[in-house]
Design a protein around this nucleic acid. Sequence first.
DNA 1: CTATAAATTGCACTCGTGTGCAATACAATA
DNA 2: TATTGTATTGCACACGAGTGCAATTTATAG
Lengths: 329, 329
Amino acid sequence: MTRRITAKDIAMQAGVSRSAVSRAFTKGASVKPETRTRILDVAENLGYRPNAIARSLIKQETDLVAVVTGSEDNIYDMYFFDRLALRLQHEGKWGLLVRAERDEDISKKLGEALMYPVQAAIVRAGTVNTTIVEQCQRLKVPLIFTGPCPVAGADSVWCDNEEGARLAVDTLIQRGCRKIAYLGGDIRMLSENSRRKGFFDAMKTFGLEPFAVLDGDFYHADGYSNGVQLLTARDVPDGIFCANDAAAMGVLDAAKQVSNLRVPEQLAVIGFDNIPMAAWPSFDLTTIDNPIDLTTQAVADTLKKRLDAPGLPEMSVAITPKLVLRGSA
Amino acid sequence: MTRRITAKDIAMQAGVSRSAVSRAFTKGASVKPETRTRILDVAENLGYRPNAIARSLIKQETDLVAVVTGSEDNIYDMYFFDRLALRLQHEGKWGLLVRAERDEDISKKLGEALMYPVQAAIVRAGTVNTTIVEQCQRLKVPLIFTGPCPVAGADSVWCDNEEGARLAVDTLIQRGCRKIAYLGGDIRMLSENSRRKGFFDAMKTFGLEPFAVLDGDFYHADGYSNGVQLLTARDVPDGIFCANDAAAMGVLDAAKQVSNLRVPEQLAVIGFDNIPMAAWPSFDLTTIDNPIDLTTQAVADTLKKRLDAPGLPEMSVAITPKLVLRGSA
DNA sequence: CTATAAATTGCACTCGTGTGCAATACAATA
DNA sequence: TATTGTATTGCACACGAGTGCAATTTATAG
């Protein structure tokens, strides 16, 4: 591996001291304009750029932010991640990718990643891992949770899933549904728990018993099989709230395939997240929008505040989801 | 910002020299077992871990790999990125996220990112940017292109899109189609160009003229509107090859909506990429699988080879796509 | 032309860590 | 016990860059 060009090389080539090179790259530093030009020319020629790693050592700070994601490979999360990456880039931060294969590995991987002096860690994981929080606290690395259910000791930006579930139930009821089923996701996920809670609470408000409650895993196939089960029974629901869009689409597919219920007249279906596909004509899915832009913006804001004032008390920002009315309910 | 715990702190607390701390963390270094234990205990207590940045300075290498992506937000790319991240993590590399908003910004962003001494850069971009290659060459940073059309001066792993398109045409012809349309993607994209070329070549082989050729942008909405246009004309095609799955799904939706053509009997549709949604019952899309695992594996292999032997001649690995037969053709 | 102020430059130290080398402590052998 | 060999340890330097301070050059005023 050929050696990287250093400031020393530039200094020799340009006939100046190494400090001069450093100053040439420092805005506002005192260097004679011609000298700076000459140095920058030489640097350009040799393909030099200051080593961010050496610089950060002395400046005592980096622009690195660990971006930690768990094992979940659902579509919404991918979009979310993509937008988050973009937002961080806008803020002048460099994301250090920490990708755990299973949720249990998250804290381990993050631990390794923290060998790099990151400014903060942004974590998006389905299940909460207390170890992560402790780890970051001990290393004094600010931690921002992206997703539901804040944990003491970390900032968090979370979608108000309970509110979203209430919105869904309200809408179904308003549509005239009375036999409402809930098709949940993986119960280990925090988002699932709060969506489920919101569902039960809302139903209680209306004095209704859930028609059925099924567990699932947030995937289309799961929504499909659960949908088949629900819709081939003797008594079928007239409304289904699904814990995410993929599952809802599975239900819609099942409805088409194994029943001749008309959607939304005889069967109303509502999803959660509002992934781009929900708008596709074949689904035309009414859903609860989990606002990516608002959320990533809030993450960026929280990050900035936290870095500006490390002593600030814990921050917890709730993002309110909203109904997106389409053809399925 | 509270100062990070350093080896010096540990050394004082444990009553040893700083070198001892360093050695305690270096496998195979000469330290008395009890001393090491004591040091590691203190380190554990104080939440210390060696600063990767300082270490990399002296070791003259990092585990960082720049992962560069352009503006394209299509579903396949997101899955691809996710799997690539996972693979890199497996290889013990840390991805440095470089996310450009527009393709033109890629080289600029990468340039900034190269202030970090990365081992290599992995680039996935729709359009090829010669600047990127020059930049990496000058900085002597190995560059691996992920995607079609290698550029001189960089390694590349690419899907044989021409072959994929041929496969699609073969299949359509075998199904009895003779009036075959091509629904392309953004013509600035390299993958589009080779898929298109493959399509034309294959058609020529069979002595057929394309029934129609439409430009698009790889999105569902585009496939839908182009589909409507194609299928509401006086004369309609009996087979459509789409440049990616999303567009193909748009076509299928259009077929359902504005025609009563039976798929696949009267209209066969083939996509490209094989995103997970292609398997969903509502689409059941026959498509050309663009193998993510093979590709990311090849990227990892190429990376390893390149790092082991920087002097090796340019590598170009072709990944052969294969047909996935489902219900749409 | 000289005196003074301002701009430019280089020296030397610093950041946190790894490591060769020499010094020391300990164990094994005679 | 004396001697040799081996395991530990600390010192000092290195990595690449930023910066205070003092030395030097240049510009400005008198």
